[in-house]
Computed example of a mutant assay.
Amino acid sequence: MTTPASEQSPFRIGIDLGGTKTEALLLAPDGAVLLRERRATPLDRGYHAVLAAVAAAVREAMAQVPAGARCAVGIGIPGSSDEHTGLVRNANSTCLIGRPLKSDLERELGRAVALCNDADCFTLAECHSGAGRGYGLVFGVIMGTGCGGGICIDGVVRQGPHRIAGEWGHLSVDPAGAACYCGNRGCVETKISGSGVEAAFARQYGEALAMERIAAGTREGEPRCCAAFDRFLDDFGRCLGGLISILDPDAVVLGGGLSNIPELYTAGVERVRRHAFHDDLRTPILKNHLGDSAGVFGAAWIGSE
């Protein structure tokens, strides 16, 4: 994918720091993709390991930038950086919470970087050059390890004064539901993220099963998988239907690993129609055009030099 750029535009490095994988992207000044690669995110080894992995990904991309050329670096994170303290907050990768990730990275790299919420990066990318292009108000959804959202209005991402606009993942929809790391119970994230569905399956059946396997088992007719997957679709419909009733967006774009589940665009859409406050719901619910990690493009575009 390319994006228009002038001869004076910098090279752009984007990093999408996810709960499972970290993706790096290098764009030429004309928008051409020069590098795009993924690696596992070392969350199990803690904050300093994640910091080192992100810094290494930036350095590897920078090594392909010609000497003396301008270069911008942007990083999408599963949370946000508090503008007053500089500390990460609201991150489902909890080892980041309370850490000065931006300043630590700038010290490691010896240069400026920009940090932005990963769902905002995803929504920006899809509205700029993907499935959300041409729509006025777009709600972008990330359904992966966690569950996040972003709002883009006429091509501009709305962050809000607390930088939490679109964070539907922490709307509590079931006060009696599972505990969420944010301190509430029954958040959207506990219902329709990959980790949430897997945790619910393990609690009910005493067996650890990956979301991919639950979906595959449903297609094979395995009863436990069918029950868990049906609950997932109903939760998806209830959560997104309620969100549409509040925002009434021109389009919804799904991203993250779970956006590759084809049933979301058939049975899932029917559940959304069932729960939205309209008897003829016409809101298009679209699969991303830029891939399940499109946010890495948004991260590159918001980068600092």
Rank of each mutant, 00 (worst) to 15 (best):
T2V: 11
T3A: 04
P4I: 10
S9E: 15
R12P: 06
I13P: 05
I13E: 02
G14N: 06
L17R: 01
G18V: 08
G18W: 08
G19Y: 03
G19T: 06
L25G: 08
A32K: 13
L35I: 14
L35T: 11
E37H: 09
R38N: 10
T41P: 07
T41G: 04
T41S: 11
L43S: 13
L43V: 13
D44Y: 00
D44A: 14
R45M: 09
V50W: 00
A52C: 01
A53C: 10
V54G: 09
A57C: 08
R59H: 11
R59I: 12
R59F: 10
E60K: 07
A61W: 04
M62L: 14
M62D: 15
V65Q: 07
P66M: 11
A67H: 13
G74H: 08
G76W: 06
G79A: 06
S81E: 15
E83G: 00
V88F: 08
R89A: 12
N92D: 10
S93M: 15
C95P: 04
I97T: 12
P100S: 11
K102M: 14
S103C: 09
D104Y: 05
A112D: 14
D120G: 00
D120H: 15
C121E: 07
F122E: 09
A125W: 12
S129A: 15
G136C: 06
L137N: 11
V138N: 04
F139M: 13
V141H: 12
V141P: 03
M143G: 10
T145H: 06
T145I: 11
C147T: 15
G148I: 08
G148Y: 07
G149L: 08
G149W: 04
G149N: 05
I153A: 14
G155S: 06
R158T: 12
G160I: 14
G166V: 09
G166E: 10
G169E: 02
G169Q: 01
H170R: 07
S172V: 14
V173Y: 04
D174H: 06
C180N: 03
C180I: 09
Y181W: 13
C182W: 03
E189Q: 11
E189W: 01
S193Y: 02
A202G: 01
A202R: 14
M211Y: 13
E212Y: 03
A216P: 02
G217A: 02
T218C: 15
T218M: 05
C226W: 00
A227Q: 12
A227G: 00
R231G: 13
F232G: 02
F236L: 11
L240I: 14
G241P: 02
G241S: 07
L243I: 15
L247P: 03
L247Q: 02
P249I: 03
A251I: 01
V253A: 04
L254R: 05
G257D: 08
L258D: 03
I261T: 11
P262T: 02
P262Y: 00
E263L: 13
L264R: 00
L264D: 05
Y265E: 06
T266F: 05
T266K: 06
A267P: 00
A267C: 02
D279L: 13
D280R: 14
L286T: 08
K287A: 14
N288R: 07
H289K: 12
S293M: 12
A294F: 04
G295P: 09
V296Y: 10
F297I: 15
A299T: 09
I302Q: 09
